[in-house]
Computed example of a mutant assay.
Amino acid sequence: MTLINTKIRPFKSQAYKDGKFITVTEADVLGKWAVFFFYPADFTFVCPTELGDIADNYAELQSLGVEVFSVSTDTHFTHKAWHDSSDTIGKIRYTMIGDPVGTVTRNFDAMREEQGLADRATFIVDPDGVIQALEITAEGVGRDAADLLRKIKAAQYVRNHPGEVCPAKWREGEKTLAPSFDLVGKI
């Protein structure tokens, strides 16, 4: 079963952001675009490269009205310790959700039950709390923030331009498509 076009499920979790512990719920997501960026564990290898890449692109994500929530099954305490001890993770200004009981991870069907760890999974959520895109990669395959930005811009474009769709490799400002009977077989 796909989660595309489904509303995110209720959750309440502790998180680390801007030097503080905060509580985050699904209500904090509504009204803005959001990225839920799941990863297996703090203090690992591929994960910090991905989280650092998102941190390097966080200003552009914010300029698009997007909030980022990274999620692992570590605690918010562990996120703080990692943030304080790693130059790469120390750059992070977005919310780092601790999910030690796995509620958020299971809500997004991203839990590796046999390990108690999150998959390497990304979800783009619209302001209504509806999942518009998702990506799950294998353990050793890191994700790219540039491609995430492209997908967010496409999702935002489609939302703001009913009747238009973005073709493969679409970039902001490029031509879109208007699906119609006359377009069938012409691409």
Rank of each mutant, 00 (worst) to 15 (best):
S180N: 14
P48F: 10
E139F: 15
I131V: 15
P162M: 08
L3F: 09
L51Q: 09
E67I: 14
T122C: 01
Q132L: 05
D84I: 13
L64T: 00
A59F: 00
S70E: 03
F45V: 15
T2F: 10
Y58R: 02
L148A: 01
K175H: 11
T2P: 15
W82K: 08
T88H: 04
K151A: 14
G142D: 09
V46Y: 04
V101D: 13
R150D: 05
F11R: 05
E139P: 12
D42A: 14
E139H: 14
G90I: 10
T44G: 09
A168F: 02
A110D: 05
A133C: 05
G185D: 06
D74C: 12
Q14C: 07
D126V: 03
N107Y: 05
W82R: 10
D109C: 07
A110C: 07
D84E: 15
F43A: 04
Q62Y: 11
G31E: 11
G173R: 10
C166I: 03
F108Y: 08
T122Q: 02
D56H: 06
R106P: 04
L177P: 10
E135M: 15
N57V: 05
F77A: 09
V66M: 02
T2R: 14
D182I: 01
V184C: 08
T75W: 08
D53Y: 02
C47P: 03
R112A: 02
L148W: 02
K80Q: 14
Y16N: 01
L3S: 10
P100E: 09
R112D: 10
Q14M: 12
I54F: 13
Y39G: 05
H161Y: 06
E113A: 10
V46S: 09
G98S: 03
W82G: 11
V158R: 05
E50M: 09
N5T: 01
T2K: 14
Q115Y: 11
T2E: 15
P48T: 03
A41C: 01
S180D: 04
T103D: 13
P162N: 07
F11H: 01
H161T: 11
F77M: 07
K153L: 03
L3I: 14
T25R: 06
R150V: 09
R159S: 13
K17W: 04
T122V: 13
D56R: 11
I8K: 04
A133P: 00
W170V: 03
G19S: 10
I54A: 09
A121V: 09
D87I: 09
T95I: 09
A81I: 04
S72D: 00
R120Y: 11
R159M: 12
R150E: 01
L51D: 02
I54L: 11
Q62V: 15
Y94G: 07
F77Q: 06
A118V: 02
R9A: 15
E50W: 08
A146H: 13
L134N: 02
V66K: 04
T78C: 08
